[in-house]
């Protein structure tokens, strides 16, 4: 491919590294992530502990890898669920128009009014902090964006001549949505999902930092940071890597999203 946007390369590389670490952690980690060995705590990097150990003697690299897995899983499932539901609602609104559209869009507007992080905190408070509840909360706050994006693009597709022709030949709304609308809005939905992925990672990190996300002993970057913060004077090095992982992942998905958007809409790129 010629002339791929630079952001696509950098973003892809960052996401690739983190995703690889997460995948590898499924089959192999340097140490067991739950093993506590207080005698081994605060070890500097060595052949055994590549990135050293934390206050409980756990291997930092292992924690980071499994943390990547947990972060990405939550983001993937949550954005997948929220995106699917939101897109379905948006497609429905775009196809039906009229009252359906009005109601769906109004609901989306309303959900927008509720700040994402606050909503997630509220759910965690009501249902108790857990992996699953973090997924549900993040999935939920992702719905309205996808509703708006898919509805707006679906409506444009519905105005096009070939769709009007398909309607004239008495094809059903579902068939037209499947054959014409969905393929046309796929690109924009994927771009949106990529960008929302970054947001999901940030919210998950904040939830975990507050102790409302992934629960111990499962490692997560956010909780690694909140634990490291209490040891700031003792072992400041522990605050560096989990934060860098979050930044790399969020930056990666943001850049990837920017790059994909430029690919999907070359006019935008030219306009820059």
């Amino acid at each position: 491919m010629r002339n791929l946007p630079v952001s696509l390369w950098i973003g892809g590389a960052l996401v690739g590294v983190i995703a690889l670490a997460a995948l590898v952690s499924l089959v192999w980690t340097p140490q067991d992530f739950a093993t506590v060995a207080v005698s081994e705590r605060f070890q500097p990097p060595s052949a055994r502990y590549w990135l050293g150990t934390d206050q409980l003697g756990r291997d930092v690299l292992t924690q980071l890898m499994v943390g990547a897995r947990n972060s990405l899983t939550i983001a993937l499932v949550a954005v997948g669920l929220g995106g699917a539901l939101g897109t379905a609602l948006g497609l429905l609104a775009g196809a039906k128009g009229g009252w359906t559209e009005e109601i769906v869009l109004r609901l989306a507007d309303f959900s927008f009014a509720f700040p994402a992080l606050l909503f997630a905190i509220m759910l965690a408070a009501a249902f108790g902090p857990s992996f699953a509840n973090a997924v549900v909360a993040i999935a939920f706050i992702n719905i309205p964006v996808f509703v708006r994006v898919s509805c707006a693009s679906a409506r444009q597709v519905w105005q096009r001549d070939y769709v009007l022709a398909a309607r004239a030949s008495a094809r059903g709304g579902l068939a037209i949505t499947r054959d014409h609308v969905l393929p046309n809005i796929a690109a924009i939905v994927i771009v949106q999902a990529t960008i929302d992925f970054a947001g999901a990672i940030l919210i998950e990190a904040a939830l975990s930092y507050l102790g409302l996300g992934v629960q111990p002993p499962e490692p997560s970057w956010g909780r690694m940071l909140s634990e490291a913060q209490t040891l700031l004077f003792l072992a400041p090095q522990l605050t560096v890597l989990p934060g860098l992982c979050i930044v790399a992942t969020v930056l990666g998905f943001n850049l990837l999203g920017d790059g994909l958007r430029d690919l999907a809409d070359p006019r935008r790129e030219k306009a820059r």
């Binding site: 956010g222 940071l225 490291a228 605050t239 934060g243 979050i246 930044v247 969020v250 930056l251 943001n254």
Partner: peptide, 22 residues
């Protein structure tokens, strides 16, 4: 600014504390 968007505020806080307080 692209970096600023990707940094969680709480980690930036920790880094600031590390620099200015510790």
């Amino acid at each position: 600014s692209q970096l600023g968007i990707a940094i969680p505020a709480f980690w930036l806080s920790i880094l600031l504390v590390l620099l200015f307080a510790v």
